[in-house]
Structures are given as structure tokens and as C-alpha cells.
């Protein structure tokens, strides 16, 4: 067990020392994706606004819910981020196969590269989200700081989520299709555009869906100007558990990954 932990922590600390590598590669990735376009990464902002706008117009019609646009904007910000992170994580090591088989870079480098990429993309969506909040005149309160803390917590859990799904995806390639389908379904069973908790099956989805709580810690301080203590508590526990699982998986599997790709 000690060897497992030492190996994992060694991998993580090497990746942190090589932070310039994953920061540079993530920026190149974003640049490459938009290099031939006129608007460049602004497309990330436009995509978010188009998506959020459609949700607000279609699902907000005849709704008496106050701040529905803000509700959807914050919910989509968090949900789209998790959806992208998890979907890309499952195939992460397969995509990095030539690097993994050709260099001695620690595996955490690839995890941090994806984390950085996702955070940059989410940065553009965040600008769109703030624009919607301003547009619909959501009252700016000091409680917004809790949302800032929530976003930091989401960034902290991201490498752990990526590691868990990347290791699982390396050993079980079918997972990528399972995850894609689950994430599509997740858009509807997560309270992104419907308001919970609700009754019956919808209530169960609300309560047992781990994403609910990550959405709430970002959303409730903005919408209701309140500190959602329970959601913050649940998220903290999930972050700790995910990191423990990620470190154990990294320690146990890091030397085997190269043989299963």
C-alpha cells in the first residue's frame, strides 16, 4: 500500500514540477482547435450562449419561476463542464498512446493537460454565463463569493475525476460509449433546466444525482443569495473520496497502462 501511495504521489509531484509542459500543451490544443477559424476561441463563447439561449427560450416560456435564465445559465455552465471533462477522460490515455509509449512523462501530465484545456474552455462559457446574469439583472450580492469558491472546488475535483475515468477507460474501452450515452441522459436527469427536488422519480433523480450538489453550490448563492451548507458538505466529501480513489488507482495502475493501450 505504501508503494502504491508513494508511486502515485511521485507521479503527481513530477507532473507539478513539469507544469510548463501541460500549460503549454493545453494552450496549443485550444489554439489548434480554432486556428483556421476567423473567430477563434470566441466560438466557445458563442456555443455556450446559443445553447443557454435555446434552453431559456424553449423551457422558460410561460414559466413563473424567478431568475429562470440565471438558473439555466449557471446550471449549464457546470453541467457542460462536467459533461466534457468526463466524456474526454474515458479516452484520454488512448489518445495519448504515442506519448505514453514514447516518453517517460508522468501520467498526471496528461490529466493536467485535459484539466487545463477544460478550464480554459469553461472560462469562455463563464464569460457567457456572467453576460446572461447581467442581462437578466440578477442581483449581485456578496454570496456570489460562495459560487466562486464552488468553482474552485470543481477545479480541484477535476483531475481526480479525469484520473478515475481515464484509468477505467484504458482497461475497459467500451466505457467511452457507455459514458457518452449516460452523459446525454444526464442532461435530462440532472436539474440543469428543471427545478428540483420535485416528487416521485424526479425527486429521486434530484437527490441521488451527485451532479445536483455541484450545480447547487454554484447556482444557489447566485440565484437565492444563500449558502447551501448541505450541498457544500456533500461536495467536500465527494471531492475527498474521489481523490482517494484517484490516487489509489494511479498508484496501482500507472505502470500497467502502457501495456493495455
Amino acid at each position: 500500500m505504501i508503494a502504491v501511495l508513494t508511486g502515485a504521489l511521485d507521479d503527481i509531484s513530477k507532473a507539478m514540477r513539469l507544469h510548463r509542459v501541460w500549460v503549454a500543451l493545453a494552450h496549443e490544443d485550444i489554439g489548434d482547435q480554432h486556428r483556421r477559424t476567423t473567430l477563434g476561441p470566441i466560438w466557445l463563447l458563442i456555443n455556450y450562449l446559443a445553447f443557454a439561449g435555446t434552453f431559456v427560450v424553449i423551457f422558460g416560456e410561460n414559466r413563473s419561476v424567478p431568475h429562470f435564465a440565471a438558473y439555466v445559465a449557471t446550471g449549464l455552465l457546470v453541467w457542460l463542464y462536467f459533461m466534457e471533462v468526463i466524456t474526454l477522460s474515458v479516452t484520454l490515455f488512448a489518445r495519448e498512446e504515442s506519448f505514453i509509449k514514447g516518453t517517460t512523462l508522468p501520467l498526471t501530465i496528461y490529466v493536467m493537460r485535459l484539466t487545463m484545456q477544460s478550464v480554459i474552455r469553461a472560462g469562455y462559457a463563464l464569460v457567457g454565463c456572467l453576460a446572461i446574469l447581467l442581462l437578466v439583472r440578477t442581483p449581485l450580492t456578496v454570496d456570489w463569493l460562495w459560487s466562486g469558491l464552488a468553482l474552485i472546488m470543481i477545479m480541484i475535483v477535476t483531475p481526480a475525476v479525469i484520473l478515475v475515468f481515464a484509468v477505467a477507460g484504458a482497461f475497459f474501452p467500451d466505457l467511452s460509449f457507455i459514458v457518452q450515452n449516460l452523459m446525454r441522459i444526464g442532461t435530462f436527469i440532472t436539474p440543469v433546466f428543471w427545478i428540483g427536488p420535485g416528487q416521485g422519480i424526479r425527486g429521486e433523480f434530484y437527490r441521488w444525482n451527485p451532479f445536483t450538489y455541484f450545480l447547487e453550490i454554484v447556482r444557489l448563492p447566485v440565484i437565492d443569495a444563500e449558502f447551501p451548507a448541505t450541498a457544500f458538505g456533500i461536495c467536500t466529501i465527494m471531492i475527498v473520496l474521489l481523490w482517494v480513489l484517484a490516487v489509489l488507482l494511479l498508484g496501482r495502475c500507472r505502470k500497467k497502462i502502457v501495456f493495455v493501450l
Binding site: 503549454a24 496549443e28 489548434d32 486556428r35 504515442s98 506519448f99
Partner: peptide, 16 residues
């Protein structure tokens, strides 16, 4: 070809 980015210049690739 490992680690070279097709879209980046040779100079940028040296840096990477």
C-alpha cells in the same frame, strides 16, 4: 514525429 505539433512552427516545436 513524437511530440511535434503539425500546426505549430518549428521554433514553437523546439520550445515544446
Amino acid at each position: 514525429g513524437l511530440g511535434f505539433r503539425p500546426e505549430a512552427t518549428g521554433r514553437r516545436n523546439i520550445e515544446l
